[in-house]
Write a protein that binds this DNA or RNA. Structure first.
Lengths: 239, 239
DNA sequence: CAGTGGTCTAGACCACAGT
DNA sequence: CTGTGGTCTAGACCACTGA
């Protein structure tokens, strides 16, 4: 049972993405939305806030929220959705090609990120992920063993790791994303069908459980011609 | 006169950054903060929400917010602060070296981003920006003429463009950031003291006024060894 | 069990947009 | 001027934490 503001957010978001609201259109005023959904102002404002952070609308004092011009298919960093779910909402067909599933000892960088010691074991899954058949990113995902062990009886070519782990009681409470650029190494180049040394957008993603403990640390390298990231922020709500 | 929740946010943020609250510490419960600041729950929650998006704290039901382990000096994408302000808060010395200030006709990409026609003029400022003397990013910033004209009587080596424009009545209401990776061209390589073809993190930034009209479109290329970006998101508040 | 944060209600006042 | 969103108040109920 999702909260009320979540339903409202998803409903309006759908109306914008399907074109029921065009760029520049005004949304109904908050009072009208309160009437329409039979809720008080709180949930309405929460829903609009999420839409604003995602860059779909912008707000000013004195006028209802307006819809932004449609933007290109970039991943929005504010409402971070797993790759396969995101691909579907942008109308493209995601695919997976698993390169390896292994149980190994972790390196210093991984140990630090997962807050474990260098002697500990981890489960590492390397997957090439595609959009409409073209290579889009190479994902090197590492899990702590307690979480990752359930991944050995799972075909990562078919299903979503996120869904599989959620079904096994793992809760993704929050994520941290760090973005920089790297040159493709030979493995990257081979998998992504680019030249060695070509620039890649790297996302290092750490997933946390509700207690703030990290259980996943992933190094994802994107072809910049296939996927970009975007974020919107309004000064009003921050600084 | 900034809103109450902003003061509270800045105060707690300061206490975390100066180490008064250590990683893992619990913040006071919301009721205690309400008492301390003599406000109701709304502003307290707004302040905590901003801290959470910035990645400084994490929250769970049933326990007060806790402070995250301190993170490396990366720019946080949620509370987007101008480069020079950000540099100061991380304890580094920002510097500017202006390469050119020009009034030119714009290209198709810029015309599209600024919602003007290709015949229109723009003001372009190219600046190398440094941290503690080392090249950090090359900024190619383009303004619409109405906003940019005030930049000719201004020394961009010394002051902050953001501050200068704010003083001239320009309001930065919201920003959109698009991130990808590019190979350094010869200009980038020369300015940033790297090899041609080296991977750079590119941020294309569009700034909007309160009416949602774009007035700045900037192409900023970062040395990935000097600056990275990060963002935190909690599932609770989004999806 | 008591304490806490997540969500929601019903009201209020102000600053700003557009007429 | 009226209508709107930005901010704040004072309450409420529920789900979850930890003793």
């Amino acid at each position: 049972m999702s909260p009320r503001y979540q339903e409202i957010y998803e409903s309006i978001r759908g109306q914008i993405l399907t074109g029921e609201y065009q760029a520049g259109d005004e949304l109904p005023p908050e009072t009208a939305l309160m009437e329409q959904w039979q809720v008080s102002r709180g949930p309405i404002r929460q829903a609009l806030y999420n839409l604003r952070t995602e860059g779909l609308i912008y707000t000013t004092r004195g006028r209802p929220a307006r819809v932004r011009r449609p933007h290109q298919p970039t991943q929005t960093l504010s409402s971070f959705t797993p790759f396969s779910q995101w691909a579907v909402t942008t109308g493209r067909e995601p695919g997976n090609h698993t390169l390896s599933v292994a149980r190994t000892r972790c390196s210093a960088e991984i140990a630090d990120a997962l807050q474990i010691s260098e002697d500990d074991f981890i489960v590492e899954i390397v997957r090439l992920r595609t959009l409409d058949g073209s290579p889009a990113l190479l994902e090197r995902s590492r899990f702590t063993t307690d979480v990752g062990s359930s991944l050995f009886d799972f075909d990562p070519d078919i299903g979503s790791i996120t869904d599989h782990l959620t079904d096994h009681g793992v809760q993704f409470a929050s994520m941290r994303h760090e973005l920089d650029a790297v040159a493709a190494d030979s493995v990257d180049a081979d998998a992504l069908q680019i030249d060695t040394g070509a620039p890649l957008l790297r996302e290092r993603r750490t997933s946390f459980d509700p207690q703030g403990r990290p259980f996943e640390y992933s190094d994802d390298r994107y072809r910049p011609d296939q996927v970009t990231f975007s974020i919107m922020n309004s000064m009003a709500a921050e600084k």
